[in-house]
């Protein structure tokens, strides 16, 4: 498990989905993109779509500005596309005890959209981020912009 800090909270990312952790220094903005898609960055010859979990987390806070440069991003590949998840800090890589278990009760705010389970790491419970849910804008199956276009 990759333990990262996002918006002040320590959460877990499944390490097997993580390709690398990179420092992003420059980004290309994507006008009209959903709020959580904050830009495009170059990772060697690949173009990485940068998504910011904070934008997904709490839609009440409205659209956040792009994160301050440079920032750390965790690179994951979903359906063949590389995404960079903006994190405050990468804390550690630790083995999980047992397999993830479904969430008991509700998590607050937008966290619910990208968390479906929790995992025990070194005796402590961490919420496990579902990168696919995050990339889909926290709204697993509906992409609001898609409907408007087609």
């Amino acid at each position: 498990m990759l333990i990262v800090r996002i918006a002040g909270e320590s959460v877990a990312l499944p390490a097997e989905t993580v390709e690398s952790v990179v420092e992003i220094e420059a980004m290309t903005a994507v006008p009209l993109a959903p709020p959580h898609v904050v830009g495009l960055a170059a990772l060697r010859s690949r173009v990485v779509t940068i998504v910011d979990p904070r934008a997904v987390m709490d839609t009440l806070t409205g659209v956040r500005g792009a994160p301050d440069m440079p920032f750390s991003a965790v690179v994951v590949a979903i359906d063949g596309h590389p995404y960079g998840i903006v994190v405050d800090e990468v804390l550690d890589v630790l083995p999980a005890t047992g397999s993830p278990s479904p969430l008991q009760g509700r998590v607050t705010g937008g966290w619910s959209a990208m968390m479906r389970s929790s995992v025990i790491v070194e005796g402590r419970q961490y919420l496990l981020i579902d990168p696919a849910g995050l990339v889909a804008g926290g709204n697993g199956d509906v992409q609001p912009t898609a409907a408007a276009v087609n």
């Binding site: 994507v30 993109a33 898609v37």
Partner: peptide, 8 residues
């Protein structure tokens, strides 16, 4: 581009 961007 990523689906979220193509969907725009």
């Amino acid at each position: 581009a990523a689906p979220a961007i193509m969907a725009i």
